[in-house]
Design a binder for these strands. Structure first.
Lengths: 335, 335
DNA sequence: GGGAGATAATGAATCGTTTCAAGGATACGT
DNA sequence: ACGTATCCTTGAAACGATTCATTATCTCCC
């Protein structure tokens, strides 16, 4: 049933070595032979066995990508960027979804290690240094995505989340808000912690402003809705006058909860700003202000760094993008 | 650098066969030996080489999944479902994104074939029968996802799109609309054609109703926005009074375009219903009515069918789910 | 004490490809 | 006619795990 180079070689009456050469370096083979072998390949419907190639090569032509949440368009955009650049280099991308769960993340890394992938791109849940060093010892390079490498000796492509957090809250303050709520969590997610820290810095510059923390257990629409409901249930004078959500999914959820029953209006009563600027932000009930990150570019660059590190001198590099404020209706100043 | 079973065997002073047995059937090995081998594995940091295993096994433990659009939450939900059931069976899922492009789809299938995947789940761009039959000849089973198999002899898990299209338009008619526009395309996408055909059937039941086609080139927010703008630019008496968009992404785009400038109001001037009921539908400018499909369940079932077909008698099975109407503000009847 | 039976461990063969040293054929220049 | 350079092709070794027929060791019982 399975057709191998041997069968092709037999039919074309050449050696297996020649078949392999036709496949990999046709210019080393006489034209007549090439076409004879090609004909045999077509006739038998031969398809290369990747496992055997990889075994010989010692490494696969796939890149493993582990993201925190496939349902977040920010990450699928990164994946698209990565995939594009990978394809240009004749590589493919294996997409793994850790769902913020360290054990799922670990099992993907195990899988990738067993597969002897070309390299790994990862937006880690916790501090991955130790695990990634083991990968490196085994000859697998890793590039951090959406997370700086903090001198841990890995290449990384990230966006300055502290600065993004600062921009978001600075914008809220500039438009006259003073009682800010930060909605996000868990803290263990680095991006959340950084955005919060930027937010705090902005608050510190404004003596009459205050920052309240509303923790969530996940960065999803659902968690946002829950947080939003907790705000809506408060007496109106105990509500914040602005919300900075740690990402757009949360912001969408918060928005939904606040506006649904018509008690609270956005942005009149409460302004909202999110993070990531996913496509849907502009299509929300009230178009959402947000902090934009160059997501596809992150994926592209990450693959580039990976390829450079694998094939080149092995030098690491850190890239940090600056985010960008996108203002929409949800943070319109009060009349 | 690379640690193989040989090294482990040497350190534990057993044969390679025994190491393999410890890995795969520890109960066949004396407890003392197991722990000695385990110790050696830990000390050396041995990691199995998947390529070698697969080569021997003749087939990998991955399932290839090709979807039409990773950015569409409907498909990532399917992927999540598939991944979950796969993981329970000690399989992993490779996610490929065809982006409605037949050549991308083909190159993923080539890749999966070279990888000798365990099986393929595919939501195909065109008619994949021929290609999938070649896969089958090579011993790779395929299950169609979000598409009935039409007697082509493959298992499939789909949702009755004709019925969904009918439900959508029937609902619009029931709420008093008569000049319906169907926005969607390209026709070559089977789901679009089926939903349209259901829509036509509903129209046929209502003599005073009319259906207009507004073709799009893709099923994305962007394409929807373009279509929506073309409607907005018309004189108000030439606009339809309801829109049925072939999926929610389109619907969101249409909504954006119509409502943005405030000229057209939804649902007063134009009602909108989408398809898929993605999370964002309920959070749109005007919460969108939609046709809900059990997306995660589709992924789960597809993997189940695949596993059954691969390991069992090879019998195929077709599953067809019925969609469900979800009514929200965007189709509220006019006062 | 010897044979039957159970239990463990062995090691060579195998999967399908790539690589590479070696060999063979051909043409060319002298 | 001979040496040499050029161009193709060959065939065996290697990658690393699994399998399985075989051998080794031990137990138990008559």
């Amino acid at each position: 049933m399975a057709v191998s180079v041997k069968d092709v070689a037999a039919l074309a009456r050449v050696s297996v070595g020649t078949v392999s050469n036709v496949l990999n370096q046709p210019d080393k083979v006489a034209p007549a032979t090439v076409s004879r072998v090609q004909a045999a390949i077509d006739e038998l419907g031969f398809v290369r066995n990747d496992a055997a190639r990889q075994l010989r090569a010692g490494r696969s032509r796939s890149i493993g990508l582990v993201v925190l949440d496939v349902r977040n368009p920010f990450f699928t955009d990164i994946a698209r960027g990565a995939e594009q650049r990978a394809a240009e280099n004749n590589l493919s991308v294996l997409l793994g979804n850790s769902d913020d769960d360290a054990s799922r993340e670990a099992s993907y890394l195990d899988l990738f290690e067993q597969q002897r992938v070309h390299g790994v791109l990862i937006s880690p849940v916790d501090d991955p240094t130790e695990r990634l060093e083991r990968l490196r010892e085994h000859g697998i390079t890793a590039v951090l995505v959406d997370r700086p490498s903090d001198g841990s000796g890995f290449s990384s492509v990230s966006v300055d989340d502290v600065s993004g957090g600062y921009m978001a809250v600075r914008h809220l303050l500039d438009t006259g808000r003073r009682r800010i709520a930060f909605i996000g969590g868990p803290d263990s997610v680095r991006q959340v912690a950084d955005r919060l820290s930027g937010a705090k810095r902005a608050i510190a510059e404004q003596p009459d402003a205050s920052l309240e923390l509303v923790p969530t257990t996940a960065l999803t629409v659902l968690a946002g809705r829950a947080a939003g409901e907790s705000l809506r249930e408060r007496a109106s004078d105990e509500r914040p006058d602005a919300v900075f959500a740690a990402n757009d999914l949360l912001a969408v959820g918060v928005l939904q909860a606040l506006v649904m029953l018509g008690e609270v209006s956005v942005p009149e009563d409460i302004a909202i700003i999110g993070y990531d600027d996913i496509d849907f932000s502009s299509a929300a009930v009230v178009p959402l202000s947000s902090i934009r990150q160059p997501s596809e570019l992150i994926g592209l660059r990450a693959v580039e760094l990976l390829i450079a590190e694998v094939s080149g001198a092995g030098a690491t590099e850190q890239i940090v993008f600056q985010p960008e404020l996108v203002v929409r209706d949800s943070t319109r100043p009060r009349a």
